[in-house]
Nucleic acid binder design. Structure first.
Length: 490
RNA sequence: GGUCGGUUGGCCGAGUGGCUAGGCAGCGGUCUGCAAAACCGCGUACGGCGGUUCGAAUCCGCCACCGACCUCCA
């Protein structure tokens, strides 16, 4: 528990030691997906980053309440008009209920997160399920004088807030600069200042998701849900707030302003932001249209992909970069990750083949220390992985008889490798590897390998190679070693 | 235009003042009937220019290039 975990706090722009507000408990809030499109690689990054954090904090013994929201309000518009076009009419008849769209993409998101072995959060609240709470906060902020009503909408008064508090403390924005960056936007005329943001927005006719309120039929502002739901489930003040770097401004800045007025407190102590995934050096995002969905990765069905990549390859690829760095997608990089992952997993499986000796030439305690040090240093998963590769090399050397390990140390090593690879990094064995542990299959293949061994002993290499080649065709890779052949499924 | 961040060997990607990150690819070797795997060895990288220092990829300054945010976006 006295782990000395340091995390980089965007608020201070420094790594800070993590000390929970309530000992032994951690409140973690992460901005989840807006469910109006298929999940893509960009969605995988924060999910995996904060999954790693969730897993590690849990391992350290904290009771973690992890809240990750589903944004299902405010993005759906009805583009149908009153034209007589038959196709348009049919489209309208077959049109999906907004909640159908939400349900569909929520399910898709869950499906792909499961495949990536991302643990479910403790609570996954939906914005649409918290309209009443959001309206209550609108009232609170209005009553405190930091919001104004304008033509059925309610806006947060940023200028007033900035007089009394500090708008921009998270993002480093200066309000005067924001004024200079003015652009013409819809609804501008309703706002006192361009940087004011909506708490409640009156729905225009084409908006199909709408709720009644004393201001108008409308929907809550874009930033309000996170302030409301984090406070509801984690309290006015909680430990860690996470999300993508692109949400830093304005989303999180606005959240801070709202929560500060509504609850009188900074909502979160530590703010963590994962960086973007780039493609050809550019951010992969919905608006740029350069995203590759997770389904496309898993099936290889995208012209940018030279092959399909397994969920674990994607997970490992993301974990091989530090979460605050951009990570550039390329087929070459992904294939390198895939091969590396196979090498690592092979070594993990090889642990069972290691025979203990009387002494150890591998320092298990040092290995353990280095692994924890990497995680404690702002979740440095790439460094942790580099240590795991060193352990992999050591394991293979033990099998080759070049290194030794005592039975005690071997047990420790098995426990540690299992802990870091499976529990904390959240990697898992492929279906093929799981099949390889099937006893019946094991005996059948062993029988074939035994026959091949006999053929080899008789210098009948034609038969030996035939067995090997035929097995390879089915998907078995045969590896000859000092003490006979071993196999694995590709 | 403003704010912030980045530029590391063939590719990806750690590293923040001196000590081999790691993975992939490549080359040489060991092992093997051959192959694969594994192991051993090799490459001697830090955008440019200047400064600080005994010593800088790492600190400071200037320049170049790239990106993020400023608008929905993970």
């Amino acid at each position: 528990m006295d782990s000395k975990l340091y995390i980089y706090n965007t608020l201070s722009r420094e790594k800070e030691i993590f000390i929970p507000i309530h000992p032994k408990h951690v409140g973690l809030y992460v901005c989840g997906p807006t469910v109006y499109g298929d999940p893509h690689l960009g969605h995988a990054r924060p999910a995996i980053t904060f999954d790693l954090l969730f897993r590690y904090l849990t391992h350290l013994g904290y009771r973690v309440r992890y809240v990750r929201n589903i944004t299902d309000v405010g993005h759906l518009e009805n583009d149908a008009d009153e034209g007589e076009d038959k196709i348009a009419k049919k489209a309208r008849l077959e049109e999906l209920e907004p909640m159908e769209v939400v349900q569909y993409y929520t399910d898709r998101y869950h499906q792909f997160m499961d495949e990536l072995n991302v643990k479910k959060p403790s609570i996954e609240p939906r914005a649409s399920g918290h309209i009443i709470e959001q309206l209550q906060v609108v009232d609170t902020i209005l009553n405190k004088g930091y919001a104004y009503e304008s033509n059925g909408s309610v806006y947060f008064d940023v200028a007033k807030y900035n007089n009394d508090y500090h708008y921009g403390k998270l993002s480093g924005r200066v309000i005067e600069d924001l004024l200079n960056a003015t652009r013409s936007l819809d609804g501008q005329t309703e706002k006192h200042n361009s940087f004011d943001f909506a708490l409640w927005k009156k729905a225009s006719p084409e908006h199909i998701m709408r709720w009644p309120s004393r201001f108008s039929d409308g929907f809550p502002g874009w930033h309000l849900e996170c302030s409301v739901m984090s406070a509801k489930y984690l309290g006015d003040e909680f430990d860690i707030h996470g999300g993508g770097m692109d949400l830093l401004f304005p989303h999180h800045e606005c959240e801070i302003a709202q929560s500060t007025i509504a609850n009188g407190k900074m909502p979160a102590k530590y703010w963590m932001h994962n960086n973007m995934i780039t493609i050809n050096g550019q951010k992969m995002g919905k608006s740029l249209g350069n995203f590759i969905t997770l389904e496309e990765f898993f099936t290889g069905s995208n012209s940018l992909l030279s092959m399909a990549y397994s969920p674990m390859t994607i997970r490992f690829f993301i974990l091989q970069a530090h979460y605050r760095s951009t990570v550039d997608f390329s087929n070459e990089a992904l294939q390198a990750s895939e091969k590396g992952l196979v090498r690592l997993m092979d070594a993990v499986n090889n642990l069972n083949k290691v025979k203990p000796s009387n002494s150890s030439s591998f320092d298990v305690n040092m290995f353990k220390e280095k692994c924890y040090a990497a995680l404690n240093d702002d979740l440095n998963s790439p460094v942790l992985i580099s240590h795991l590769f060193e352990a992999a090399k050591a394991i293979n050397s033990m099998i080759a008889g070049l290194m030794m390990i005592t039975a005690d140390d071997l047990e420790k090593l098995k426990t540690l490798v299992g802990l870091f690879v499976f529990d904390i990094l959240g990697l898992k064995q492929t279906v093929a590897e799981t099949n390889a542990n099937n006893e019946v299959l094991n005996e059948v293949v062993s029988l074939l390998l035994k026959l091949r061994g006999e053929a080899k002993a008789n210098k009948d290499f034609v038969t030996a190679d035939k067995i090997r080649d035929e097995l390879l065709k089915i998907g078995f890779v045969i590896k000859d070693g000092k003490d006979g052949a071993t196999w694995e499924l590709k």
